[in-house]
Design a protein around this nucleic acid. Structure first.
Length: 434
RNA sequence: GCCUGGGUAAUGUAGAGGCCUAUCAUGAAGCCCUGUCGAGGCUUCGACUCGGGUUCGAAUCCCGACUCGGGCGCCA
């Protein structure tokens, strides 16, 4: 049987007289001599446990005084309506069970009186999450992912799971983490791209996967990690890339609407304006001319990717979510579909938040011969893509998809300064523990 | 990989060559206090990342190591 009978938010002054058992952490204690308070914290909030000298036994009071902050306790007692108590009620304990005594000193303060640096917090993440704000971030993360799944299921998607251990020959463009697979070399997957495409040949039609991806780039910024959660989508029987862009913008709008007004958001004091549909579409060519004479960015060469200064400048100009579409074919991976009438441009897109890139996608090449040709043109060996190309030889529908960074989505929604705030146990160039 | 700024008690900080056996707050320990809610009052505890150097004298200046942050690149 679960020790606790009620969470803190299930109690009220109207329940006065009722016997309950609450359980959680000793958040704070206040000793006023003749009366002793314990503020107990559970997942849902705080409850005041009050011990007036005359109403509880001397043994119980002495025992309670010996419990250190952040120790885990269960408290049996009666609810008492009390105007002087926070929330207008308190618990008068008949029994306090010490379940786990916390050592002193604590690695960081959980009450919000003293700050702690991100590095300190991550070193003791279990305790950091005891802080109201951090808990609100990770519960919002949970809410976001639930909203994403709800959206997908409401829109006829099938959730898939693909392997994170791969032989080799992924899409290129990034460094991979090598691992040992029995006596062979293998790698952690940089993206489910090839696998979700293969599933378009399976008839599932609309598939999504939410899973970690691994990139061995030695980047060192506030918006990069070596392990992130990718929200990946692939849709069959599309006519063009815009078909999946519409799904993406509707998803973003849906998630914002689901998250706005949640208690977690209130705890973080965040007002969440809902991005309006449709998002602005700007072609790569338009971007180049918009930035052409901008003094804040350097010379831009047609065909190159946009650097950070360009992203920032565009973000300032547009001021809300937008798409950059029709990127140069050579700047995108081999599977991006070129425009029929203008093959130097691809049917590709990036979803941008004013702060940074959130997602990228494209219509994919579904023609076996063209795909093979594009692989070769990128200087890759088609033989090592046999497992993938095979799916294009026996009936592959036209398809398109995208990958959205879950951490970046959360980061931009909650205006987090560092992507590490959005991950419980971030993996970056330096950190491998905890 | 490049540029740049840091590292002082358990946490967050003050400190700019002698005023530092180092400030303040949180905390911990003890005492007082029957309505606290960042409780209050009194007392106590606890730190200059490491290694060299300069100097009569170094937390402070210089060099190196380790380590953390910010910007860029790479990347998404």
């Amino acid at each position: 049987m679960i020790i606790r009978t009620h969470y803190s938010n299930q109690l009220s002054p109207e329940m006065s007289g009722e016997a309950v058992t609450i359980a959680g952490w000793v958040h704070e204690t206040r000793d006023l001599g003749g009366i002793y308070f314990i503020v107990l914290r559970d997942r849902e909030g705080f409850i005041q446990v009050t011990m007036p000298k005359k109403k509880v036994s001397a043994e119980l009071l002495e025992m309670a005084r010996g419990i250190s902050r952040e120790s885990v306790v269960a408290v049996e007692g009666d609810i008492k309506s009390e105007d002087r108590a926070p929330g207008k009620f308190e618990i008068i304990p008949s029994k306090i069970i010490l379940l786990s005594m916390a050592e002193v000193p604590l690695p960081l303060d959980t009450t919000g009186k003293v700050g702690a640096e991100l590095d300190t917090r991550i070193d003791s993440r279990f305790m950091d999450v005891r802080r109201t704000e951090t808990a609100a971030v990770f519960r919002t993360r949970s809410n976001v992912l639930r909203a994403v799944r709800n959206f997908f299921h409401e829109n006829g998607f099938v959730e898939i799971n693909t392997s994170k251990i791969v032989a080799t020959a992924t899409e290129g463009g990034t460094e991979l983490f090598p691992i040992t697979y029995f006596d062979r070399e293998a790698f952690l997957n940089q993206s489910p791209q090839l696998y979700k495409q293969m599933m378009m040949a399976s008839g599932l039609d609309r598939a999504y996967e939410i899973a970690p991806i691994f990139r061995a780039e030695e980047h060192d910024t506030r918006r990069h990690l070596n392990e992130v959660t990718s929200i990946d989508v692939e849709v069959s029987f599309v006519e063009e890339h815009n078909d999946v862009m519409e799904i993406l913008e509707r998803l973003i709008n849906y998630v914002y609407r689901e998250i706005a007004g949640t208690p977690e958001l209130k705890a973080l004091s965040i007002e969440l304006p809902i991005p309006e549909l449709p998002f602005r579409r700007i072609t790569y060519d338009e971007v180049i001319s918009m930035l052409q004479d901008d003094p804040n960015v350097g010379d831009i060469e047609w065909g190159s990717d946009l650097d950070t200064a360009c992203e920032k400048e565009l973000g300032k100009m547009v001021g809300e979510h937008y798409f950059i579409i029709d990127w140069p074919t050579d700047s995108k991976p081999f599977y991006a579909m070129p425009h029929e009438d203008k093959p130097e441009l691809s049917k590709s897109f990036d979803l941008m938040h004013p702060r940074m890139e959130l997602a990228s996608g494209a219509q994919r090449i579904h023609d076996y011969a063209l795909l093979r040709e594009r692989i070769e043109a990128k200087g890759l060996n088609p033989d090592s893509f046999d497992f993938y190309l095979k799916a294009f030889r026996y009936g592959m529908p036209p398809h398109a998809g995208w990958g959205l960074g879950a951490e970046r989505l959360l980061m931009t929604m909650l205006n987090l300064g560092n992507i590490r705030e959005a991950v419980l146990f971030p993996r970056d160039r330096r950190r491998l523990s905890p």
